[in-house]
Design a protein around this nucleic acid. Structure first.
Lengths: 116, 116
DNA sequence: CGATATATCTACTACATTGTAGAACAAATA
DNA sequence: TATTTGTTCTACAATGTAGTAGATATATCG
């Protein structure tokens, strides 16, 4: 297996979304979770290729589900974060936390945003 | 100027280092700050090219200083984060914070991020 | 004194990995 | 067949990273 490397920014976001969604995580719900929570647009392509790469790295597992009985209810591919993925996520977030911790100079804007 | 995009993971770390170091920020000190704080190795090339790109995006400014009177004291290039850089950093950190907030019992260090 | 060794730093080059968009494709119900 | 929900594929841009070369200062030894 490849040597563990640092996660990219979007990879961190996607892994976090997987944790949040638990068993409800699949392409569309993940995308919606990220968009509604961060307010930033996520293209389908960006999401699926990132998920695919995370799976290659053994950070995520996926399986095809059954089709649902609703119009257009095509079978979903369900994603779940693996232990390796959680460990890696923790490392990346830890590094970020170490760098950001205690910065007094956060502008007022951020504090305002943080209250929302 | 290019359209504002999301910061990469390493870009976030570098900008945070600039804030931490204030006027003491130059290639070597930035590198050391990141390495000692995160425990992760940073190659010189990685750092300078990232700084250079951040400068192109108008997130960072730099100026050449004078040579110091120590052996090998070549002139340093001093870096400082600009208002645009702080604003962009806020956005990225905010998005990450929104995704990470409350997802689990993060170790204490990580809560910094989740609190934002 | 001055050639050259050595230390501190920055700049350049090349390539790997991630990020992103959009069209194409698939499968279900109306 | 039309429409809706989803996923896969293709192509390219932006970031991440290592390694090497170059620049410029002080040290040192004949």
């Amino acid at each position: 297996m490849r040597k563990a490397k640092n996660l990219g920014e979007f990879e961190i976001i996607v892994l976090a979304a997987l944790i949040r969604l638990g068993t409800d995580a699949y392409g569309v719900s993940i995308r919606q979770e990220i968009e509604s929570r961060t307010g930033r647009a996520v293209s389908v392509g960006a999401l699926y290729s990132t998920l695919s790469r995370l799976e290659e790295k053994n950070y995520v597992a996926s399986r095809m589900g059954d089709a649902t009985a609703e119009r257009g209810g095509r079978a979903k591919r369900h994603y779940i974060i693996k232990a390796e993925g959680e460990a890696q996520l923790e490392k990346s977030v830890f590094a970020l936390g170490k760098m950001l911790k205690g910065i007094k100079a956060w502008p007022e804007t951020l504090k305002t945003l943080a209250r929302l």
